[in-house]
């Protein structure tokens, strides 16, 4: 980490040669080499980990995705695109892919709407209140996944706690079907991913100064205007960081959709899990993995455009 300037303007120096003649060109070339080495030095440990821990292990599955399922032998060695063709031409699977993305988006919007105000409160709170609120926000992550999921079933069931209370209070005449559908899964996933959204927002909101907001108020801007013109744009990076974590967490979850969905919600992840463990159809399961990967890469690239890291 010898050279750690954050402000190095690479775009300028990236142009080799230039009008300065041969000597300048040499200096520029040397600088470029140095920069290259610096990048290699900084990014190679993490790249190595990804190669060993992710790329090499997944190569086997990539190969597997071209094999053919065989009910007797698990799979037959082949080099065929059958699995991909089958999956990509089947309306059912395309629908599941679309629903998985929709689930991720729905959970992200849910956490944004629920989390933005509380993040704001935390960012503006006095220190002891702040600690308490932070602890509360972190709490969903502290309950074991399985325990938490069954906890939700107890709360949201037809004769669950929530329906019981609402019946007692006379708010409803008969139990609402709160469990076993898509929105139950959204609530369950939204609960556990809320901390990611809130904390991402808080760490950005902290940098908004009181003076800025006061200046807005003094200029006679309405609360709404201050929000849309000042606060929202400045917290955009936090929204970006939080949303990608929430989205990714949601689409790769499988315990929560499987249990809270009451068997009526399938995502690409639950299908993959079933194909790897129950039906032991590894070739199709593997192909599904790479379809999921491709689909998410597209989403992340779009997200990258939306939340461009501006210089």
């Amino acid at each position: 980490m010898a050279d750690a300037s954050l402000v190095q303007n690479d775009t300028e120096a990236d142009r080799p040669g230039g009008p300065g003649g041969a000597r300048d060109g040499e200096i520029a070339a040397a600088a470029q080499r140095r920069r290259l080495w610096r990048r290699v030095f900084q990014l190679s440990p993490i790249t190595l980990l990804y190669v060993v821990g992710l790329i090499l292990p997944y190569l086997y599955l990539l190969r597997m995705s071209f094999n053919i399922y065989d009910p007797m032998l698990v799979f037959r060695e082949a080099f065929a695109l059958d699995n991909y063709i089958k999956l990509l031409t089947d309306a059912f699977y395309l629908q599941i892919v679309a629903e998985t993305i929709w689930l991720g988006v729905a959970v992200t919007l849910f956490t944004l709407i629920v989390g933005y105000p509380i993040a704001w409160q935390i960012a503006r709170a006095k220190s002891h209140v702040k600690s308490l609120l932070l602890a509360a926000v972190l709490s969903p992550l502290l309950i074991n996944l399985v325990v938490r999921t069954y906890g939700w079933l107890a709360i949201l069931g037809d004769n669950g706690i929530l329906n019981g209370w609402m019946l007692d209070l006379g708010l409803i005449g008969s139990p609402l079907p709160l469990s076993n559908n898509f929105w139950t899964v959204v609530v369950g996933l939204g609960h556990v991913t809320l901390p990611f959204m809130v904390l991402s927002l808080v760490s950005v909101m902290e940098s908004l100064s009181d003076e800025l907001l006061e200046a807005g108020e003094n200029l006679g801007a309405s609360t709404f205007q201050i929000f849309t013109d000042v606060v929202w744009p400045l917290t955009w990076a936090g929204v970006g960081a939080g949303s990608i974590l929430v989205f990714c967490f949601s689409i790769s979850a499988f315990v929560t959709p499987a249990l809270l969905g009451g068997g009526h919600v399938s995502t690409v992840s639950t299908l993959i899990y079933e194909k790897f463990t129950f039906s032991v159809n590894w070739p199709v399961g593997s192909a599904l993995v790479f379809i999921l990967l491709a689909m998410n890469m597209v989403v992340i690239m779009i997200h990258g455009r939306l939340f461009r890291h501006e210089d």
Binding site: F92, E99, G263, H264, V265, S266, L271, K275, S279
Partner: peptide
Amino acid sequence: LEKWNRTFTG
């Protein structure tokens, strides 16, 4: 499994 998912989910 596939038929089950087609029938009961989605």
